[in-house]
Amino acid sequence: MTRSVWKGPFVDGYLLKKADKARSSGRNEIIKIWSRRSTILPQFVGLTFGVYNGQKFLPVLVTENMIGHKFGEFSPTRTFYGHAADKKAKRK
């Protein structure tokens, strides 16, 4: 069952404080968070979060098309090392 719209998106409170602090400092820091359940808000765009996956903090660079998703979606708890084959990586 989906969350009622009238409640608004769920975000852990400490996350907004951390994001505000990082944005005001202007430094290129990773914001380490544990809150995989929080929704990605528009004010997080452009920031890099380190989202804990139970072992380590995986970097998540927030872009516009990630708004509305949860942080945990971008930090999987299991890792599969496949063959590189002809796969390409693009530097943003």
Binding site: V5, G8, P9, F10, V11, L16, I30, K32, F57
Partner: peptide, 28 residues
């Protein structure tokens, strides 16, 4: 990043986790 190896800091306290933040939305 300068804080790559820095400890993540203390986990959020009970107080910080107690309530969710009210986020203003346009409709509803």
């Amino acid at each position: 990043p300068p804080n790559l190896f820095a400890p993540a800091g203390p986990p959020p306290s009970e107080e910080e986790l107690a309530g969710e933040i009210e986020v203003e939305i346009d409709d509803g």
